[in-house]
Design a protein around this nucleic acid. Structure first.
Length: 284
DNA sequence: AAATGAACCTGTTTGC
DNA sequence: TGCAAACAGGTTCATT
């Protein structure tokens, strides 16, 4: 479900409600999500205080203060396609709802529930250095909103790949956080056909694409993300960026720039949307 | 090596 | 109306 703007929005919401709070209880209702829940997660988290909530790629990271015998651990959550992290001002004694896999209750009675119908999401718990060295994090590419992601970086990656540019920018090993929606939206803004072989892109086109990715992600964060089906903020409120889509989900509707009907194709099993007029495929 | 497809799950929408 | 197929924000593994 969530791409970078949605995860960032959830992260910001949770930060304001969890930093400084102490975990009183962790209830694991269903251990068989994508990866099994961390061993002894409940007791390892018990009595820890949340010192920070951060985002890395599409993960939400809770920094949990040290206890006797260790220097603190980080709880990482990936939301998969349908995962939600919902804050409840009063959680104690509430009965879990369907797909509420983990409930974290704070000492003040508030809490956070991890709900995920499809169970593609998962949790990891480890000291920060171990988490970052794990197979999940070690392979992650650059953050798209950071300076390291620039036209030069993308061009260097593109030169070595003949894969369609849409797939390349969705590859988390190259740049993180860009998923199926924002890939189509960014390519439209950069006026690049999603099937363009990456190694055909010139430096200037890569720079334009980088700018488009940064722009669309930033705007989506401003709007609280995009709510199509499942995504909600930690408050339960929806996002609004779906009203600003130029191409995603608009098959047959007119392009905002030239009125040509938007096309839908399937790449690697995922729907791609583009304007055939504004995003021509140049075949060399 | 690189690229497509299937698989993992459940829920909702679409089409006959 | 009913049922089946298609589809969904992600990632990984197996097969060409």
């Amino acid at each position: 479900m969530p791409e970078l703007p949605e995860v960032e929005t959830v992260c910001r919401g949770l930060r304001s409600h969890s930093v400084g709070k102490t975990i009183a209880a962790v209830q694991c209702n269903r251990p068989d999500i994508r990866f099994p829940l961390p061993e002894n997660m409940a007791e390892r988290l018990h009595n820890r205080t949340i010192t920070a909530v951060e985002r890395r790629a599409k993960y939400v990271l809770w920094y949990c203060a040290a206890k006797e015998g260790d220097s603190g651990e980080v709880l990482a959550t990936h939301l998969g396609m349908t995962g939600r992290l919902l804050y409840h001002a009063v959680l104690a004694d509430a009965a879990p709802k369907k797909h509420d896999h983990v409930c974290v209750t704070f000492a003040d009675g508030s809490g956070i529930v991890f709900n995920d119908a499809r169970r593609f999401g998962y949790m990891l718990l480890a000291p920060e250095h171990a988490l970052l060295a794990s197979s999940h994090f070690a392979v992650l590419g650059v953050e798209p909103l950071e300076a390291a992601f620039d036209g030069h970086y993308l061009h260097a990656k593109c030169k070595r790949s003949s894969s369609p540019i849409k797939l390349l920018i969705m590859n988390q090993k190259i740049v993180v956080g860009v998923g199926n929606i924002y890939a189509s939206e960014a390519l439209y803004r950069a006026q690049l056909h999603p099937e363009t072989p990456a190694n055909q892109l010139k430096q200037a086109q890569c720079s334009a694409l980088v700018a488009a990715i940064k722009q669309v992600l930033a705007e989506a964060i401003e709007s609280g993300g995009s709510t199509l089906r499942d995504y909600v903020r930690s408050s339960g409120d929806v996002g609004y960026f779906q009203h600003h889509f130029a191409v995603y989900g608009r098959e047959g509707e007119p392009c905002h720039m030239c009125t040509t009907p938007i096309r839908r194709i399937v790449q690697s099993g995922r729907a791609s949307f583009y304007c055939g007029q504004c995003q021509p495929l140049h075949v060399v």
